[in-house]
């Protein structure tokens, strides 16, 4: 029922400080169900901080965050984990778990302290692995697969968590172009097939423009502009936020805006 909500994530005047440094101010967002949202902005603009506030890795210092109609500060880690899954930026894993072990960890919020994974949990993990094209890796150790494969395994784990919302922190920034597209298409497919809502921090503006239903541009902790790709990815905004002169054309195949960076802005 809850995942049928029209707006699974809302923030009201969210603010966050690191010591005295204001990192986020007055962030008010309404995230619509079944859409792909990208958060873009320069380094240090507060993108990841925003994501971590929504995920409750950081507690909002002012304002509030609602996930599926509940204030996140009032939710336990476990009920949070049933609503929202996270694909973190750094997915290096030192211990030699198998891929299956890692994906099954996504079932943690559903398994009691004295229980272990049921056959249903194993089925869910299998379907998550099939959806992310990682099933053939199931017996491999997580330390011996490539970066792109590992990222897909982490997406599979998030999927096994069976949540209505998936948050991703630069899911493709360390991958080559082939694996970038592969991950993005996987996520797009999941949104379409499972009606989940995805919010992702993105570095590559062209990828963001290509795959997002909605883009949120932030700078110095504030929302500069948000909306469809054509409304946000404009020469004016790029100049204002990234201090770059650019030329933007429409991608002849997809019709989405495509940026050609020209030079560092002189003004």
């Amino acid at each position: 029922m809850e995942s049928k909500l029209r707006f699974p994530i809302e923030t009201h005047d969210l603010g966050w400080k690191y010591g005295d440094r204001q990192i986020l101010s007055d962030i008010s967002l309404t995230i619509k169900r079944g859409c792909f949202y990208s958060i873009i902005g320069p380094n240090g603009s507060g993108k990841t901080t925003l994501l971590r506030n929504i995920a409750k890795s950081l507690e909002p210092k002012s304002g509030s965050v609602f996930v599926e109609n509940s204030d996140v500060t009032k939710l336990s880690s476990r009920s949070m984990a049933k609503r929202l899954s996270v694909v973190p930026q750094n997915t290096n894993i030192e211990f030699e778990f198998t891929v299956t072990d890692i994906v099954l960890m996504g079932r943690s919020p559903y398994i009691g302290r004295f229980e272990s994974e049921s056959s249903q949990d194993i089925e869910i993990a299998e379907s998550a692995m099939r959806a992310t094209n990682t099933w053939h890796l199931k017996d491999k150790r997580i330390t011996e697969i490539s970066g792109g494969e590992r990222q897909r395994v982490i997406v599979a784990r998030a999927l096994a968590q069976d949540t209505g919302i998936m948050l991703l922190d630069e899911p493709v920034s360390q991958l080559d172009i082939h694996h970038q597209i592969e991950i993005m298409e996987t996520i797009q497919k999941l949104i379409k097939n499972r009606k989940i809502t995805a919010v992702s921090v993105m570095h590559d503006l062209n990828l963001a423009a290509q795959y997002s239903d909605h883009i949120i541009l932030i700078d110095e902790g504030r929302i500069v502009c948000q909306g469809r790709a054509h409304e946000v990815i404009t020469e004016e905004n790029i100049k204002r936020v990234y201090k770059l002169d650019s030329y933007i054309m429409d991608n002849p195949v997809t019709g989405k805006p495509y940026i050609i960076h020209v030079r560092k802005s002189s003004s």
Partner: peptide, 11 residues
């Protein structure tokens, strides 16, 4: 795997 990951898995 990481404290933050563990937390996001409901621990």
């Amino acid at each position: 795997i990481g404290d933050e990951t563990a937390k996001s898995l409901g621990i």
